[in-house]
Structures are given as C-alpha cells and as structure tokens.
C-alpha cells in the first residue's frame, strides 16, 4: 500500500554541501577502524546540533561515555539495552507536550541509536511499539552483526555461516546456523513513512537518508551496516572497504522504502562474488565451497526479490530513477 510522504523539509546533500561539523568528539574510545562509530558520527553530522540522542547500551554507549568524559556535544541519554526506542518515545512525547504548553520553543530532532542486538533481539518489542505508535523520531540500528561489546556473541543479525564466540564452527555446526534477520523489512512492515539501509562507504547516500528520515513526520528507521574489525577478525584499515564490498556483492543492498515504495539507491549492475567480501574476514574462513555456493545463491535470490519489490511498488505512471552517487 503506497502512501504519500511529505519530504518537503528534506534538503539534499551533495558533494558541495557536505556537513562537516561533528557532534561526537575525537578522543572516543572505539577500537581502531571502527566503522560503527564512523557511521554514527556521519548520522550526527547530517542531523546537526538541534538533536537529542537516546543511546542503547552497547559499544557506542561505552566508548563515548566513560565517566567523567563524554564525547557528545548534543544532549544524550543512555538508559538500558533494550529500550532506546521506548526512551525516545518518552522524550518525544515530553517535547510535544512542553512545546504545546509554551515551555519549549521548538521540538528538537530525536535520534535513537542501538546495535543489532539492541534492535533485532532484545530491543525489538520496544522498537515495534514505538514505530507503531507513530512517534516522530529516527531509530538507527548500527549493525555490526554480533554482540561485540560483550565479546562477539551471535545475534539474530549475524550472517549465516559466520563464526562468533557463541556460533563457533565445528564438526556439527557451520557456525551461525540461521540467516540474518531482515530488520529493515520488519521495520517497513510497520508502514512507517521512511525506512532505509545505509553504509558509511556510501556517505552521500547515507547523509541523504538521514536527512529524509529526519524530514518526515513520524517514525523513520535506518539500518546501517558497520564493519567491526575486532569481531570480524579483519584488518582495521579495510573497514570502509568491507562496507563497500558488502554492497557491491549484494550482501547488503542499499535501498529505501518511502511510504511503502521500495527504491534501490545503489543498483548493483556487476556484482562481485561474495567471496571477495568474505576473504577479508576471518569469521568466514572456515566456510566450505558448498556453503559459499549456498550463500551466493541466497544472496542473489534476495537481491532479485528486492528488485521485484521495487518493481511491484513503483508508481504506475513512472519508473523510479535511482539517485546517482556523487
């Protein structure tokens, strides 16, 4: 069901007006080559100073806030692991009431950050509730595909076959036995105005998705892919390259769902094999050729399904042209 979404407040970001002002300072304690903090920093650059952040427990919370230092220059609230969306609901409702009563000049933007465990597992209920109630906020899942903060345990967002400390490969297991949970489509099923996947390797695409997510009235969901060199056993220098390879291999397609319409924002015309992406990470090195073949076929199938969604949800009178990456 397609719905009209008002994007009139959206200002397009191009190579000419890139937002550089940072709201997470240097001196944060993320691991070398952390793409998660990179992604979060990019979201904040696009969001700007009039923003309140609600942060779930996890890597991003601990690396930015060990007392007495904070890397945040915007108002920031951390409560617990599973409730970032609920906390944001409360902040949003309060700002609504206070604005109406003349106690607050203008409602700020509200962004909730959580990792994949805090989103797809323990925080899924709170997220679903907040999306369904229609709060005007942006929920950002920073997906590094396992519980990294606690020591690389598997989550429902860990990809099939990956080695983690609780999905070890062995005689009787391939590693992670289940396919990655499709959080973006779960969010889209709530029929909220805006859902998108993003990657820090495609920074303009990411900036524009943040701008759109903030521009719409009501909830928006961003699912951002983020390399964890510590957890993926990859070279920290390759973190952004891995984010790019995940897109180029169709493992993590970039798309948005605007009022129910699926739009692939980075078309993958000449896909790289998944092995190009796998071989830079030790979490996949135990995979057998059969396993890789299975993964490749399912990745292709899912991308084809996404293309079918795009086709099926395109407005009848026109075919959507994807914006070109600058």
């Amino acid at each position: 069901m397609l719905r009209d979404v008002d994007l009139s407040g959206y200002e397009k970001v191009t190579a000419k007006n890139i937002p550089w002002e940072k709201f997470i300072t240097s001196g944060h304690r993320a691991c070398q080559g952390c793409a998660e903090v990179l992604a979060m920093g990019m979201v904040m650059k696009a969001a700007g100073p009039e923003t309140i952040v609600c942060n779930a427990t996890g890597c991003m919370e601990i690396i930015t806030s060990p007392f007495p230092q904070s890397a945040w220059t915007v108002p920031w609230l951390h409560v617990a692991f599973e409730n970032a969306a609920a906390v944001a609901s409360g902040v949003e409702s309060a700002t609504r009431a206070l604005e109406r009563k003349g106690k607050l000049k203008k409602r700020p933007k509200i962004i909730a950050f959580a990792g994949d465990g805090g989103t797809a597992d323990i925080g899924l209920q709170a997220l679903s509730g907040a999306l369904e109630r229609g709060h005007d906020f942006v929920y950002v899942c920073l997906d590094n595909e396992a519980y990294m903060n606690t020591g690389i345990q598997r989550s429902s967002s860990t990809p099939y076959g990956a080695m983690t400390t609780t999905s070890p490969p062995g005689k009787k297991s391939i590693g992670q036995r289940t396919w990655k949970k499709n959080m973006a489509m779960i969010a889209a099923a709530h029929e909220i105005p805006y859902v998108a996947t993003a990657s820090p390797a495609y920074h303009l695409d990411l900036f524009n998705k943040v701008k759109k997510a903030l521009a719409v009235e009501g909830p928006a969901y961003l699912h951002i892919f983020a390399t964890c060199p510590t957890g993926w056993r990859s070279d920290p220098a390759k973190s952004v390259e891995l984010c790019r390879l995940a897109v180029q291999s169709k493992v993590f397609p970039l798309y948005e769902v605007v009022g129910g319409q699926y739009i692939i924002t980075q078309k993958v015309k000449k896909p790289k094999p998944v092995t190009d992406y796998f071989k830079l990470q030790r979490r996949f090195r135990h995979l057998t050729p059969d396993a890789v073949e299975y993964i490749q076929s399912r990745v292709d199938e899912e991308y084809a399904r996404l293309e079918a969604f795009e086709k099926a949800t395109a407005p009848l009178e026109e075919v959507a042209e994807p914006p070109t990456e600058g």
């Binding site: 240097s26 001196g27 904070s70 915007v74």
Partner: peptide
C-alpha cells in the same frame, strides 16, 4: 550526569 559536553577530547587516544 556529565556537564561538560565533548570533554572526551581531553583523551589522548
């Protein structure tokens, strides 16, 4: 609470 926003910039990483 931490009342000095961005004071993590003191940390020499």
């Amino acid at each position: 609470a931490i009342l000095s926003p961005g004071n993590a910039k003191e940390l020499r990483t």
